[in-house]
Design a protein around this nucleic acid. Structure first.
Lengths: 207, 207
DNA sequence: CATTACTGGCTGGCTGGCCAGAAAGACAGA
DNA sequence: TCTGTCTTTCTGGCCAGCCAGCCAGTAATG
């Protein structure tokens, strides 16, 4: 009766938690589009193709559902990063790939940026979400830092600060500029982005 | 009957719009603390010491009240910036002052950072707020850019990009790092901030 | 038949906005 | 200075709508 959260494989034809997956993904998209407040169980359930009650059955509360959303967000972020950065062969290429990665995301689907900010504001008011968000930040930083370390050992980059700090700064600039681009989509941020990249290059390669 | 918004001086002992001021300030603090959704007219009215109805009388809707909050936010931001940056005599001092300004704000009262993010997420869903937010971004950028230009003419700085772009990048890094500090208050961001400053220095002075 | 997975009606609480009218001036005349 | 009237400012009760969570009960599974 009090199973909750991934109550074990539904035995039969379905993947374990296949419905739970659909709920999380529906919530993810809904939060990006409508915000946390606008993402009612009613809407999300309809979009996931399940009943409203199931959301409670699996997750109990909205907050716990959001924590799962954050977790999934981290996975998606990692995949995107790894795919983009793997092939960089020097600092310039690395930054260029980072930039096009952000560009592309903004043009095709700004879901996860929006979601990140939405979760950040909620984290201020809910400890469960806050913990999930901290975890997301830490894992993301760690992940990029590992990539940076690897690239350094390959001789592709020469970091002028510890990898974690570099990762923090890279993500910070990325988030800050993204926020501005989203707020003023008609403005040309080309020069600002170019300036940012020039400025960041000093962290990746002082040769 | 349809006066609305600063309906003219209340003639007598009070300052013009003194109550409106109190409402805006109460809303500002409430949004920072409880978020937009949690800032009900009931709470805000009580904290401003007025009746709930007066909020409608002055502002009509919650959105329009929020737009006023954004406007006030810009003024506060300008004052803080001007006060801090006026005395900088070289690029390093400029960045140092920028940093201590952010530090101090974080330690004493992170109200306006929180508020800024809160408004950003709301802007995604409300055109009135979005316009106010764009305006805030533009005016803030313009303001810092003007400061930068002035410092350049004084010979204090030598910008390596147009002032608006430099302002964008400075604020972006500031916002991004601030977000991270707020999310992980126990982590030591000293090295990351140092790295950011080293990196940004290239935008202010290539001598 | 027992257990687990799932449904959807219900409810109590809350919210933004509306509005009828009270309170507080403003002004004029005596 | 008092009084009566008009206007502006301000109040708080009311309402319709919405929502998260609860739960009694149904379907599926083994």
């Amino acid at each position: 009766m009090e199973a909750r959260i991934n109550p074990s494989p539904p035995s039969g034809k379905d993947l374990p938690g296949e419905k739970a997956e659909r709920i999380i993904e529906a919530m993810r998209q809904s939060v990006a589009r409508r915000g946390v407040a606008g993402s009612t169980f009613d809407h999300v359930a309809r979009e996931a193709g399940v009943s409203r009650g199931l959301l409670h059955y699996y997750f109990g509360t909205k907050e716990r559902l959001l924590v799962e959303v954050v977790r999934r967000e981290a996975d998606l972020r990692f995949d995107a990063l790894d795919a983009q950065l793997a092939e960089a062969q020097d600092a310039d290429a690395f930054l260029r790939l980072l930039q096009t990665s952000v560009d592309e995301m903004l043009r095709t689907d700004p879901t996860y940026v929006t979601l990140t900010f939405e979760l950040f504001t909620l984290a201020k008011r809910n400890e469960e979400v806050a913990e999930g968000y901290r975890d997301l930040m830490q894992r993301t930083r760690k992940h990029l830092a590992d990539s940076l370390r690897a690239k350094e050992q390959e001789g592709v980059l020469h970091l002028t600060a510890d990898p974690e700090s570099v990762a923090d700064v890279l993500f910070s600039v990325g988030d800050g500029l993204t926020m501005r681009v989203l707020a003023e989509p008609d403005r040309d941020f080309g020069p600002a982005i170019a300036a940012a990249i020039r400025s960041l290059r000093g962290l990746l390669d002082d040769a």
